[in-house]
């Protein structure tokens, strides 16, 4: 992605200073030249304290997320793209059509203005691709050392039409578990770039907006009983969080797609790819009769050209409240939440 030249004259302010958060002339310059240029919409043009929105079809859905990934720029994305995708995807997982985002930035004094421009323009480009508008925001600057370059919070509003809501608890016995692609790329990409670990192939984050895919599933008449994006904690955590008290998710380890280089990196670093973060992958739980059609839709809406959707398991009642993985050698083990964290600050 190309971001064009930074609209703040570098000669004047090559880095963000405390004055950029002071609410005065420099704050205004940031808003006018950078945010309005990147996000460009009627709500920002109004320069009001808030954004007065149009209601969409159905009930409003609200979500929020903060992003603190380190490094700010990683293979396949940056914190700006992540901040838009993360919130858009949370709305999509409720069955909603995302419409509006907020953007609150906490900047560390000394942040290169070029880097801020990259983050902000990446947010603008990703929002455009995802069909959402960034309608209001806030900028604070903290002294050097009090934040790590840039933290982003985005809140999002979407609308879910009657009958399209997806909530935990709708999953039924006999349903099928699908993923929209191989797991583990994002976590490994971020770790590798942070630690300077080089692999033979470059692993890029899978970061991508997923709302269009969910809408395509709905449009194809697929009954969505469960949706969950596989972010922090990965596929394993998502399943454990989602499984109902009376139900069992039975996963087939051999069917869960993991790219060879990601698997290799996991072996090397001692990670389980099932617990590595993704930012463009989700679990869709659908009735058996819709599974084939859903897989076709997922294959048409791949977040990356080489992301292969797969059927990875079924729902039954054999071990209530549990997620059971059939290992590649045929043994079974229950999956649980991780006790610590595998990787620090991956989103």
């Amino acid at each position: 992605m190309s971001f064009g030249a930074c609209p703040i004259p570098i000669a004047d302010y090559p880095v963000v200073t405390l004055a950029h958060g002071g609410g005065g002339r420099l704050t205004r310059q940031l808003i006018e030249r950078m945010f309005r240029a990147a996000f460009d919409n009627e709500w920002l043009a109004e320069q009001h304290d808030g954004a007065i929105l149009e209601a969409g079809e159905g009930r409003p859905v609200l979500t929020t997320d903060s992003f603190v990934v380190s490094p700010v720029v990683f293979p396949g994305g940056d914190i700006g793209k992540l901040a838009v995708c993360g919130t858009v995807n949370d709305l999509a997982m409720c069955g909603a059509v995302p419409r509006y985002l907020t953007c609150a930035l906490v900047l560390e004094e000394g942040l290169p203005m070029e880097l801020l421009w990259r983050v902000v323009s990446s947010m603008g480009a990703t929002a455009k691709a995802a069909g959402v508008q960034i309608v209001t925001g806030d900028t604070k600057v903290v002294a050097r050392g009090q934040a790590d370059q840039v933290f982003v919070n985005t809140a999002g509003v979407g609308f879910v039409a009657a009958g399209r809501e997806v909530r935990p608890g709708m999953v039924q016995d006999g349903d099928v578990l699908l993923v929209n692609g191989d797991v583990g790329r994002h976590g490994i990409a971020v770790l590798a770039s942070r630690e300077g670990i080089e692999f033979e192939t470059s692993i890029e984050s899978d970061c991508a907006p997923l709302a269009a895919t969910v809408q395509a599933l709905q449009a194809a008449g697929v009954e969505l009983h469960g949706l969950r994006d596989l972010t922090r904690g990965g596929l394993g955590t998502a399943c454990v969080e989602l499984v109902g008290e009376r139900q069992t998710y039975r996963l087939d380890e051999a069917a869960i797609p993991v790219r060879g280089d990601v698997r290799g990196a996991c072996e090397l670093l001692g990670f389980d790819p099932l617990y590595v973060a993704n930012e463009g992958r989700f679990l869709a739980i659908v009735p058996e009769r819709d599974a084939a059609r859903a897989l076709e839709v997922l294959a048409e809406h791949r977040p990356q050209p080489d992301a292969e959707p797969a059927r990875i398991g079924v729902v039954d009642r054999s071990a209530p409240g549990r997620v059971v993985l059939r290992s590649v050698v045929g043994g079974e083990r229950p999956l649980d939440l991780l006790s610590g964290e595998q990787l620090p600050r991956i989103c």
Partner: peptide
């Protein structure tokens, strides 16, 4: 052993 359930085999 525990991860793959080998002892149970």
């Amino acid at each position: 052993i525990v991860r793959y359930g080998l002892d149970r085999m």
